[in-house]
Design a protein around this nucleic acid. Structure first.
Lengths: 237, 237
DNA sequence: GCCAGCCTCGCTATTTTTGGGGAGGGTATA
DNA sequence: TATACCCTCCCCAAAAATAGCGAGGCTGGC
């Protein structure tokens, strides 16, 4: 790891504001001499958070044309665990080709490398480098920096999660052991009768736990409670 | 990054057999002069895969006593994105304390550092270092190697996924858009009537989606289906 | 053209879950 | 020694989910 990478990691870690976060992507772009560096995160509700050096024109264009749905990069990253080199993806579909040409028009380079990053609760983020060079140079570049990029991507993600969590500060409730067990049994698909038998208690007692958990979790029904318990990491199936 | 780390990464990457994978954990243990190095993976269906230097006695003990359910390390990693230093966890519960002492009896060191790793389809893996040293030394150790450990953990995970995919893993079912929407609505705690109204369809139609998703997911009831969809990463709430 | 898969809607009846109301004993913490 | 929280059990009535039987139209691939 070069000293440069170390100091970039430190500067990301030290970022206290979104501006500093944004600056870090720009610094990284300059340090690596690439065209673009982008960190980007989307959840199911459509909330997004991101920073990077793409022009706002391109971002708008991307959203307007709903490229998210046909972008081979997104698709590839969803399926893989490992980083994706754009040129190894399948760009054969008509929509994908059009998108690629469009991207070049909007100032993107022809080469790209995107690292998928996953976090708790199904969080999914992308860390992308984009540059303009021929294949050989690009391969050498990736070969040289690939591992450090993984670290940088994770550091961006860690910081992004920090910003997001700072917004909400929802105190996660705690479940008593029996409540946990009850929720776990529900998550396993047991009926109340089965679950009660499994725990060696009466069905009525089991119900009390489920209701307690429901209330603690602020859930509307059992399914909701299980969903919340799961995505808060309170239970593991 | 030290040359040593580079060569370890390369040796993991080069591993062709489970034996080589196992050897890599042992090499890493020796290189870092720690007591244990463990890579461990569990998916939503409960399939397991792991390699490491824990004694089989301890692994058996862990499973037998169902420590998975009360291990603060597991709990901490599920909730966090970042690595966890064992000593910063909450070991105050009786069960956790007993487990910790038990672990020492079985040859584990008093310090630990575990990196959570997440992949596609809700895959969740842990990469753990365990050692016997005082707090100051351990902190210095983590400070020095933390970032490289993230890389090593990911490399182990990449390799593990390779092995798993080689043996034809259980194909994760795919949900149609409407089925996804129905599952998401259920996970949000909507009643069928509410969910149907939300999707602008009849309650009966909604039911068809829910049942289809249940069958695809091999679930016993709606709660079970939602739990599976969530932990497979098919839906995000 | 056919088949598979998706999307949409209807009916009836049974089983299960939920929402209220209770009660008593235990343990731990303040 | 209170107070809080956890564990356990019970009844009743209403709401919701499940199981089974149907139907037709649409798309996209072989």
């Amino acid at each position: 790891m070069t000293l440069q990478t170390e100091s970039l990691l430190d500067s990301i870690q030290a970022a206290e504001t979104l501006e500093a976060f944004q600056t870090a992507t720009e610094d990284l772009r300059d340090a690596l001499a690439v065209k673009h560096v982008v960190y980007h995160w989307v959840n199911s509700i459509g909330e997004r958070f991101g920073a990077g050096t793409y022009s706002s024109d391109w971002v708008d264009r991307y959203l307007e044309k709903d490229y998210l749905r046909l972008d081979p990069v997104i698709f590839g990253c969803f399926q893989r665990f490992t980083p994706v080199n754009w040129k190894q993806l399948d760009w054969s579909s008509k929509g994908a080709k059009a998108m690629f040409l469009d991207a070049l028009d909007y100032g993107l380079g022809n080469q790209g490398y995107t690292i998928p990053i996953r976090g708790p609760n199904g969080q999914f983020a992308l860390f992308t480098l984009n540059a303009d060079m021929d294949d050989d140079k690009w391969d050498a570049f990736i070969d040289k920096h690939g591992r450090e990029l993984v670290l940088l991507g994770h550091e961006f993600n860690r910081k992004a999660l920090e910003f997001e969590q700072g917004k909400e500060t929802v105190a996660a409730p705690t479940l008593s052991p029996r409540e946990q067990a009850a929720m776990t049994a529900m998550a396993k698909g047991y009926s109340r009768a089965q679950a009660a038998a499994d725990l060696g208690i009466s069905e009525h007692t089991l119900r009390v736990y489920i209701e307690a958990a429901r209330h603690k979790l602020g859930a509307l029904n059992t399914t909701h409670a299980v969903a919340r318990a799961l995505s808060s990491g309170l239970i593991i199936v």
